[in-house]
Amino acid sequence: MDQSMLRSRWHILTVIFWGAYCAVAQVADAPEAQLASSATARHYVINVEAVTPEREDDYYVNLLRLILAASTAPGENVELRFSDRQFTQWRWLIELSQTDSRNKLLWTATSTHRETLLRPIRIPLFKGLIGIRLLVIRRDDEARFRQLTSLQDLQALVAGQGAKWPDSLVLKANGLQVTEGVGKEQLYKMLAAKRFDYFPRGVTEIANETAFLQQYDLMVAPKWYLSYPAAMYFFVNREDEELAARIETGFEKIIDIGEFEQFFSSHPRVKNGLPYLDGRQPFLLNNPSLPKSTPIDNPRYWYSFSSASSSAALAN
């Protein structure tokens, strides 16, 4: 029996065990369960591979807390611990892939290569909206971008992207020119300094980055945006099936009861980002680095646009 089949069976058994554990704990007689939990309370620590969020409305952390609340057994105390150091996204990935990285978690965009390093929880955190990319440009270039009529026109310009970001591979695979930098703050500075022509930013990211636009006299380009299938996941170490099962169980539960939809649709990152698509059309791109297991055909996990053109853009 090959290793992939063994891992699959082990994962199934882990999910079954975790579900059974939670179910038994929940149906226990309440007074007795409280007495038992006080004597055998489990303190479960999850190390989040990120620094403590600066904003109270942090999407990822608050979503994670909803998920954990739905999958925590009575009497169990779950604690999130954040890093005191900020690393590059790639450094976090390598750190988490190490053999001693149990009970650790991060969120990042998926790719075939990243899924060989880490264990993905294949429920898109933004329902696939991470692949809808607005074009941030210098304000004095507005007329230039308004004159674009095709993807070929855009291929004559240069995009800025982070080094080792999966998006860089997507852009290059579609014939777009790319200059790379380290981190979004540096890339905004590079755009303002005319090191490249535009900086693709996710429709769910732009609402948190308006300060950069104001600081560097930037704007969202008219007429067009980029669209390709992509997903942002929670990831854990490949051997950490207990944490993976906990996250999957809680995530599926909050989807079932409608809590995720309420959280998603009311969050500023989504609510304030989607209006940017009004009056703009997509340049449709392929994503050759997207794993075949990405659930783009499952409406349970994927965002459904009201307009046919936008729906085709996301699914293309």
Rank of each mutant, 00 (worst) to 15 (best):
S4M: 07
S4Y: 13
L13N: 06
V15I: 12
A20G: 13
Y21Q: 11
A25N: 12
P31M: 08
S37Y: 11
I46E: 04
V51K: 02
T52L: 02
T52Y: 03
E54F: 07
R55W: 06
E56T: 13
D58Y: 09
S71I: 03
E76W: 11
E79L: 05
S83T: 12
R85I: 07
R85H: 12
F87L: 14
T88E: 02
Q89T: 04
R91C: 01
W92Y: 15
I94A: 07
L96E: 03
S97D: 10
R102K: 14
L105A: 09
A109T: 15
A109S: 15
H113A: 10
R114F: 01
L118S: 03
L118H: 07
R122V: 10
G128D: 01
L129N: 10
I130Y: 04
G131K: 05
R133Q: 11
R133I: 08
I137H: 09
R138P: 14
D140S: 14
A143P: 04
S150H: 11
L157P: 01
V158C: 12
G160S: 11
N174E: 00
G175I: 06
E180H: 02
E180Q: 04
V182N: 03
M190S: 09
A192W: 04
A193S: 13
E205R: 14
A207H: 06
N208E: 12
N208W: 03
T210G: 00
L218M: 04
M219G: 01
Y225C: 13
S227L: 06
A231C: 15
Y233E: 10
D240S: 12
D240H: 08
L243R: 15
A244L: 08
A245N: 00
R246L: 13
E248M: 07
T249D: 02
T249A: 03
D256G: 01
F260L: 04
F263H: 03
K271I: 05
L274K: 07
L277A: 02
L277K: 02
L277F: 03
G279Q: 05
N287Q: 04
K292V: 12
N298A: 06
P299G: 09
W302L: 14
F305S: 09
A308W: 11
S310W: 08
S311N: 05
L314T: 06
